[in-house]
């Protein structure tokens, strides 16, 4: 893997001949300095337009939320950022330790809210060999990993929005472009936010920004995971590596190449087909739910205003 000159600069502490922390497809190399400036301006602009001075986000210990925490810290100062750590009883202790390291390095506010009681209070839990039912009754025993994972994501969303009211800050999203495009998120869970500064950066590009920001190397290098169950990794669950997925999405979405053109470029047609379906099937997650048109003027159809606008003056 080679990195074009002028692409994402490595921090000074890291020798130039060191093994790269991650694989970067050359066409995804970005000018991290400019990207960082735009995202920082975006964060400031969004808060200013909404009349807020503070922000809150869920810090998982992974790279996405770490990058957003650094960016928010740069935009408004770490003292105006509250990071909420929300482990579940099966969450990996390393995730929590990595999140704590980000908080320590940034010097931002932080708060830990264990969501175990909230999740188990719905599904119930095993006490040794015996199942202790909760809100869902005995059905909770057989709930799938998907249902559990989704509920965890939505409980975290509920906690974040509650904390946002207390902290008087907007919830900053942490979803990257790769997961936004393939729909690898829980709708109204981890995708819920007031605005998302990194949603137009592929995972590979976000990694470049992470290096530039000085995010701890262990966070950059470890396999990405939703950490919804022990040993889970994104790449095992989705079935592709991020560099190959990012490359395909870049050519498919950003460069508008047809399946035939993608095949000529060397992408396996089955891979193209599979990812194409994931993107198409998750279109609804990227849009505001439609409202049935009945009246003369309908939100999102022919009532179109900026998200934040000044009140009319009389």
């Amino acid at each position: 893997m080679t990195e074009p000159e002028g692409a994402g600069r490595a921090p000074a502490a890291r020798p130039a001949d060191a093994d790269p922390l991650f694989e970067l497809p050359p066409e995804l190399a970005i000018d991290t300095r400019v990207a960082r400036r735009i995202m920082v301006e975006f964060i400031r602009g969004q808060l200013r337009q909404a009349g807020f001075e503070r922000a809150v986000l869920g810090l998982s210990g992974g790279i996405d939320s770490a990058v957003v925490a650094y960016l928010v810290g740069e935009a408004i100062g770490p003292e105006r950022l509250l990071c909420v750590l929300m482990p579940y009883r099966t969450s990996s202790p390393e995730s929590l330790a990595d999140a704590r390291e980000v908080v320590d390095r940034l010097g931002c506010g932080s708060r830990t809210v264990d969501i175990t009681g909230m999740v188990d209070g719905y599904f119930g839990r095993m006490d040794g060999e015996r199942f202790e039912p909760a809100a869902l009754g005995t059905e909770g025993r057989d709930a799938s990993g998907l249902r559990r994972g989704n509920l965890m994501a939505r409980m975290r969303m509920a906690v974040l929005y509650d904390q946002s009211a207390e902290w008087h800050g907007l919830v900053v999203g942490t979803g990257n472009k790769t997961e936004v495009l393939i729909g690898y998120s829980t709708h109204f869970g981890d995708d819920a936010c007031a605005f998302d500064p990194v949603g137009d950066l592929y995972k590979s590009q976000l990694r470049q920004v992470a290096v530039d920001l000085g995010v701890p190397e262990r966070i950059i290098a470890k396999p990405p995971s939703a950490d919804l169950w022990p040993g889970q990794t994104d790449e095992a669950e989705v079935g592709f590596s991020y560099p190959e997925l990012d490359r395909l999405l870049y050519w498919m979405v950003d460069r508008r190449r047809s399946p035939e053109e993608l095949a000529e470029r060397g992408f396996d047609p089955r891979f193209v087909d599979h990812v194409g379906r994931m993107v198409a099937r998750s279109e609804f997650k990227r849009q505001v739910p439609p409202i049935a048109k009945l009246g003369p003027r309908t939100s999102g159809v022919d009532y179109l205003y900026p998200r934040r606008r000044p009140a009319p003056t009389s």
Binding site: P4, G8, E27, A29, I30, V34
Partner: peptide
């Protein structure tokens, strides 16, 4: 509106 932050661009934009 600024867009396209590909590293190949002259000024990164």
């Amino acid at each position: 509106p600024g867009r396209d932050v590909a590293a190949v661009n002259e000024v990164g934009l």
